[in-house]
Amino acid sequence: MVNLGGIRKEVSIELVPEAQVGDYVIVHVGHAIGMIDPDEAERTLALFGEMSAATGVSA
């Protein structure tokens, strides 16, 4: 069960078996396809528009 900004909807977590209650997942056509990493989200927010020293987050 996921809460989409107030709307509760049942989605499949067969593709992200590690998901636990309380996690944030990315939902696509009724299936969770990935998870949100809260630490990385904070890091990206801090990065926005910073000087170029903050670049080079190579994948």
Partner: peptide
């Protein structure tokens, strides 16, 4: 823009909160 200015051509990841190098292996 920064890559072009520096003459670099790399894969960079702005979406690190959800994407890694390998992707969703189960999928």
């Amino acid at each position: 823009v920064r890559q072009v200015n520096d003459g670099r051509a790399h894969v960079e990841n702005e979406f690190t909160r959800a994407v890694d190098r390998d992707g969703n292996l189960a999928a």
